[in-house]
């Protein structure tokens, strides 16, 4: 339990720093910045206290907002995907979720892809809508959200594969 707690805290601060200092300076292909900090929400242990989970997701978002001067856009997007996460867990992993037996490191690739994909796309659409905050810029919002979703999805899948414990 303690081990899990520490790895979560480490992940929290690690992701904030990597996000703010590296990922937001990337500007891949001119304008793409991946938002890899969503990994914290995606990989938060299944079956833990839901209220705490919402609270930590909000805190993560607010800290990112503070660094990037975005008001509360990241926090809003983070809390939303944290709240709707169980639905997509059930959708992607089916029975394994019912038994609370998901270890993200040991899941198959395709369920993980759907699970990551849906949540990341929702996160990005909400994020960019709040960042632009202008209904006349729907085209910009969607193009930005989708391109950065793809990049984020790719990086989160790679990172989660690299850093997850080996199947034994």
């Amino acid at each position: 339990m303690n081990n899990l707690l520490f790895s979560n805290i480490g992940r929290f601060f690690g992701l904030v720093l990597v996000q703010v200092l590296i990922c937001n300076q990337m500007n891949f292909l001119g304008h793409l910045n991946p938002f890899i900090y969503v990994l914290f929400v995606l990989l938060y242990p299944v079956g833990s206290n839901r209220l705490q989970f919402l609270f930590w997701s909000f805190t993560l978002g607010i800290i990112i907002d503070y660094f990037l001067d975005t008001g509360g856009a990241h926090a809003a997007a983070c809390v939303t995907i944290a709240y709707i996460r169980p639905f997509f867990l059930k959708f992607a992993f089916g029975a394994a979720y019912e038994y609370q037996a998901i270890k993200f490191g040991q899941t198959e690739f395709f369920p993980r892809l759907t699970y990551f994909g849906f949540l990341i796309v929702i996160h990005q659409i909400l994020l960019f809508s709040l960042l632009f905050f202008d209904r006349y810029k729907i085209d910009l919002i969607m193009s930005n959200a989708l391109s950065s979703s793809l990049f984020t999805l790719f990086l989160t899948l790679v990172l989660s594969a690299l850093f997850s414990p080996k199947k034994s």
Binding site: F55, I62, T70, G71, G72, A73, A75, A76, Y83, F133
Partner: peptide
Amino acid sequence: RSFLLFLVLFGASLTLTIRSH
């Protein structure tokens, strides 16, 4: 309770976003 907490946190961040604009 989790839905209410979600509403509160979402509302707070939305207020911050609107204020930042």
